[in-house]
């Protein structure tokens, strides 16, 4: 496979954002080397499908739309009642595994890895930064590690995943990526922001 071109390639500039010279309270970077596969099932047989997937991926499947399951490099989100997103490193052989598992009519598998750009916001004020646009309560009690939410930031649909105490991954549709990046780095100016190289 040829290399995917990052949607942020033209605007991505590592370094400090803005003139505020206090310590950087937020670090932003793109998580470029990720892939994403959607698996959908049907109301009557979704449980069974999940059990097959658990065997296939050697990993539990999420019970609800509130918390992801993260194991190793993979994170699995239940984005709808019978719909899963499996995110993994770009060399993850997810599609091959699904194709080989003969899931038949019980599953619909869709590769959507090119459709999302993933941005990591980390640091003490990452939560403050996201809440400049995100109408989701990110307090630890309401949104612990591995909690996720599909919502909207400045009219742009996002999936926000808490990957650590102060680390969040934001999945945004690729065509919005530049706009989202401009919004994010703009909103981060007052907080003290560092952009580091893509991971």
């Amino acid at each position: 496979m040829p290399e995917q071109r990052s949607a942020l390639a033209s605007v991505y500039k590592p370094g400090r954002v803005g003139v505020y010279d206090g310590p950087a309270q937020v670090v932003l970077f793109e998580r470029a080397n990720r892939t994403l596969v959607q698996v959908s099932g049907w109301p009557g047989s979704f449980r069974e499908l999940c059990r097959k997937l658990e065997t296939l991926l050697a990993c539990r499947m999420p019970e609800d739309g509130l918390k992801a399951i993260s194991q190793g490099q993979r994170s699995i989100f239940r984005v709808g009642p019978e719909r899963l997103w499996v995110a993994g490193p770009s060399d993850d052989d997810l599609l091959m595994r699904f194709d080989g598992a003969a899931l038949g009519e019980e599953a619909v598998v869709t590769e959507i890895g090119h459709s999302r750009t993933i941005v990591r916001a980390a640091g003490a004020e990452a939560r403050t930064l996201l809440n400049r646009g995100l109408p989701i309560d990110l307090d630890f009690t309401a949104f612990p590690v591995d909690a996720f939410a599909q919502s909207v930031i400045h009219h742009m649909p996002v999936l926000v995943h808490r990957v650590g105490d102060s680390d969040f991954d934001v999945y945004v549709a690729r065509d919005y990526a530049v706009s989202f990046w401009e919004w994010l780095t703009g909103a981060a100016r007052s907080l003290g922001c560092q952009i580091s190289g893509p991971e």
Binding site: M156, D175, Y176, V178
Partner: peptide, 16 residues
């Protein structure tokens, strides 16, 4: 901040 360029988001094609 929703003024000027940021009044609304912009969707860009991969070849933009």
């Amino acid at each position: 901040p929703e003024t000027g360029l940021h009044f609304k988001p912009i969707r860009r094609s991969p070849m933009h």
